[in-house]
Every structure is written in structure tokens, then in C-alpha cells.
């Protein structure tokens, strides 16, 4: 394919602009990585931009020798994986049921759900509910409240509706019940939408620290993001402490904070590209022709 002159000019401009744009986005992230490899005290002097001035692995050593990090990682991994599985299953079967026009009370369920999208119970009533359910200070507080999302259910429901009814009917003729239809027909055909929701929910589960902040006091159950949150807010400690005696506590240096940030964010960045393919993969290839 031969490009015309103006197309070539456009391409060059486009590439230059995009590179510039990308650099603006990448520089702060790159700078975080650079500073996390720089000596903490030396970094105070400023001027570290593209390469560490006093290279050190000490920041990472400090973080990784703290055993709570590993535990927090395990909690986060578990809550992300179990959370995704539970969320997809519960929201999925609800979406499947709601995609059927003959479901009794469907209109009312939809209205009830829509109301909750606009109005939530508020923090304190929700706290009371979670407490009454006995979920505080358990691992399940990360999972149970997020099993169902009405918003995600709408996305799934609309997707299911576009699956030709005849595919389900053919399975029913072969003797499949609703669960079998859902698991064997609907679920495989809806992989793209399930993958999308899995990714959304996975990112939510990975990033969520607020649940732990409100409902969990047991340090063994803290997820990695809450650990990061504590590290990042520790700088405030120095300024909260009022005049009096000089508090000889060690407050984390900025470099350690940034290294923690890298350690906690890296896994999800690594996983992202592998999930991307699900967004573009097609659906209904080789399905029934009508």
C-alpha cells in the first residue's frame, strides 16, 4: 500500500505527537521506579529524574524482609481470585434469570435494583449491617458484600439477550436444565463479557483498601493495598506529632514509599496485557444460523 505525501506527513506528525504524549504519561511512572532505586536520604536533595544518583536495593530489601508484605499479598490474591469467581457466578446467574422476559416480578426487581444504583445505604447503616451479619474481622467481608453488582448484572443481562434463543432451546431439547444451559451454553458463549467484568472486579478487589480500613482490625487480614496506604500516610505521622520531645521514630522515606508502590502495583500491571485479548475476541463463531 502506497501512502500519499500528505498521508506520510500526517503519519509522522501523528507518531511524533503520540510519542510526546506517551512520554508525558510515562515519565512520572518511570520517575517513581527511578526514585525507588535511589538512596532515600540522597533523594531529598532532589534532581533525580531519569536515572538513580545513588543506586541502592535497600528500599526493596526493607520492604521485602517485612513478612507482613507476603501475608498481605496472599490476602489480596485470595480476595481477588475468590472475589472474581463469586462475583461472576452470582451476578451471572442473576443476569441470566433477569434476561428472561417471563421471570415473575422481573419489572419490580429491575426497579429495586435501579434505586440502589442511585441511593446507597450510607456508610454507617452499611457498617451496622455488615456487623450484624457477623462479617467484621473475617475474610468474607471482602467477598460477600461484592458478590452481586446490579450494574454488572445489566451488562451481562443485555449480553445474554443477544444470544439466539434457539441455542438454548436446542440444549433444552437434549434435556439440559437451566443450570446446565447457563454453564454449558451461555457461559462459554459469553466469555468476552465475563472476562471484562472479571477484569473490572479484579482491579476493584486488588485496589480496595477501604473495606479493610472500616471493617477489619486483625492485621493478619490486611490486604496489600491497606499496607501501602499505611506506608503512604506514615509521612503525616511526623507532622502530626506536636512539639514536645523529639520523637525518634523512623518515618518511612519517600523512596521506600515509592518502592512499596512499585511492589504492590507491579502484579496487576503484568496481568493486564494477558487479559486484554479477551476484549477483542469474537463471539458466537460457528453458532446457529437462523
Amino acid at each position: 500500500m502506497k501512502l500519499t505525501r500528505s498521508e506520510k506527513v500526517f503519519d509522522v506528525c501523528n507518531i511524533v505527537f503520540m510519542c510526546f504524549f506517551l512520554a508525558i504519561i510515562l515519565f512520572p511512572l518511570f520517575n517513581i521506579i527511578v526514585l525507588s532505586f535511589n538512596d532515600g536520604l540522597d533523594a531529598i536533595k532532589g534532581g533525580v529524574f531519569l536515572w538513580p544518583r545513588k543506586f541502592t536495593l535497600k528500599n526493596y530489601q526493607t520492604i521485602l524482609k517485612d513478612t507482613t508484605v507476603y501475608r498481605a499479598f496472599a490476602v489480596t490474591a485470595a480476595k481477588t481470585l475468590i472475589g472474581i469467581a463469586g462475583h461472576l457466578f452470582i451476578t451471572g446467574i442473576a443476569g441470566y434469570a433477569m434476561s428472561k422476559p417471563y421471570l415473575i416480578g422481573r419489572g419490580m426487581f429491575i426497579k429495586m435494583g435501579i434505586i440502589t444504583m442511585y441511593f446507597s445505604g450510607g456508610m454507617i447503616p452499611t457498617f451496622l449491617l455488615i456487623k450484624a451479619l457477623g462479617l467484621t474481622n473475617t475474610f468474607w467481608v471482602y467477598i460477600v458484600p461484592t458478590l452481586f453488582s446490579f450494574y454488572d448484572m445489566i451488562i451481562l443481562m443485555n449480553f445474554f439477550r443477544n444470544i439466539p434463543i434457539s441455542m438454548e432451546e436446542s440444549a433444552e431439547i437434549d434435556g439440559a436444565n437451566f443450570f446446565q444451559v447457563f454453564l454449558k451454553i451461555i457461559f462459554p458463549l459469553s466469555m468476552p463479557v465475563f472476562a471484562t467484568i472479571a477484569l473490572f472486579h479484579g482491579v476493584y478487589q486488588w485496589n480496595d483498601f477501604f473495606t479493610a480500613k472500616l471493617y477489619v482490625t486483625d492485621k493478619e487480614l490486611f490486604p496489600i493495598q491497606y499496607y501501602l496506604y499505611q506506608v503512604l500516610t506514615s509521612q503525616a505521622a511526623a507532622s502530626t506529632a506536636k512539639a514536645g520531645v523529639y520523637v525518634a521514630k523512623e518515618f518511612t522515606t519517600k523512596s521506600i514509599q515509592l518502592a512499596t508502590m512499585v511492589v504492590t502495583t507491579l502484579p496487576i500491571i503484568l496481568i493486564y496485557p494477558f487479559l486484554q485479548k479477551y476484549f477483542i475476541s469474537g463471539m458466537l463463531v460457528g453458532g446457529v444460523k437462523e
Binding site: 456508610m123 454507617i124 457498617f127 451496622l128 456487623k131 480500613k213 472500616l214 482490625t217 499505611q230
Partner: peptide, 14 residues
């Protein structure tokens, strides 16, 4: 145990 104002308020309310 540590926590912020949100946690304190919810604990007080409950």
C-alpha cells in the same frame, strides 16, 4: 488497632 476518622465514626455510631 489503627484507623482514621471514618472508622472512629462508624464505631461510635454502632
Amino acid at each position: 488497632m489503627g484507623g482514621g476518622d471514618e472508622k472512629l465514626n462508624t464505631m461510635l455510631a454502632s
